[in-house]
């Protein structure tokens, strides 16, 4: 019970201090909306084609919603030594890091529903298979958050966290099948696509929204879950190795 009081308050503090701040909202929401508008205008597609673009928009919203703040704040707190307060608290490192990441996961998942809600008013989404959408959104949010955390723990400076986040995020927009399928990429780039967790999350969204998935959902979910577990494990190992020297 005591550990959960700590968990809840770490989450609450991060949501208030970081996630509800305008810069985060602008990165998480405005940026993907600008992208999709650009795609719609550039391609001359009508609103009936929106379900084809929606998986990419949802993935993009989650990716930027989860990673825009987390990697920077963790690095910032580490540098300012306030992170030491958390490491000194009598709660396990696993629970602590889950508390630190829950805000990002929550914000990323909420971000995902903004374009979905908007699309509901603009086009017909009756063919969408909603049963897989929610778990896919949650897993994409978790894997993207853990990727952000992994980056944060791997660097020392705040600017490095920003640079490395973008180093991963921007290629992922093109490599993970957000706006065009992975099989349309040059062959030499495809292994990179399969090495990124967002590819599998986007595949589930594509399959659920437009029926154009490349792999069975079960396999996508399995691989995505493995990514989450491995990234979390590596992050904890890095913290133990680098921060508790």
């Amino acid at each position: 019970m005591k550990a959960w009081i700590a968990f809840w308050n770490i989450l609450l503090k991060d949501v208030r201090s970081y996630y509800l701040k305008p810069p985060n909202i602008s990165w998480g929401l405005l940026f993907p909306l600008v992208w999709i508008t650009m795609f719609l205008i550039r391609s001359g597609m009508g609103m009936d084609k929106l379900p084809d673009l929606l998986p990419g928009l949802v993935s993009l919203s989650i990716l930027f919603g989860t990673t825009s703040v987390l990697s920077v704040t963790v690095t910032f707190e580490k540098k300012g030594r306030s992170f030491e307060r958390l490491l000194l608290a009598p709660i396990s490192l696993q629970l602590l890091m889950l508390a630190k990441t829950s805000g990002a996961i929550l914000f990323g998942a909420i971000n995902a529903f903004v374009p979905i809600l908007a699309a509901m008013f603009l086009t017909d989404l009756s063919a969408v298979n909603w049963n897989f959408i929610v778990p896919a959104i949650v897993l994409i949010a978790v894997s993207s958050t853990f990727l952000g955390l992994f980056i944060a723990v791997s660097v020392k400076e705040v600017f490095e966290a920003q640079t490395f986040s973008n180093f991963f995020r921007f290629p992922m927009i093109f490599l993970c099948g957000l706006f065009f399928p992975v099989h349309s990429l040059p062959v030499f780039l495809r292994p990179l696509s399969y090495a990124l967790p967002l590819t599998y999350g986007t595949d589930i969204l594509r399959g659920s929204m437009a029926g154009t998935n490349m792999m069975p959902f079960g396999l996508d979910f399995l691989i995505l879950s493995v990514f989450c577990a491995v990234l979390f494990y590596l992050t904890l190992r890095n913290i133990n190795k680098k921060w508790i020297t």
């Binding site: 019970m1 005591k2 550990a3 009081i5 700590a6 201090s17 306030s82 709660i91």
Partner: peptide, 26 residues
């Protein structure tokens, strides 16, 4: 610690309440 490491964005009162919560205080 040798350097003050509380949260700059929180008030004095909120900083203390937050630190108390880390030890499971209601």
């Amino acid at each position: 610690p040798d350097e003050s490491n509380l949260y700059p964005e929180l008030s004095g009162f909120d900083n203390l309440c937050f630190c108390a919560s880390l030890y499971g205080m209601r």
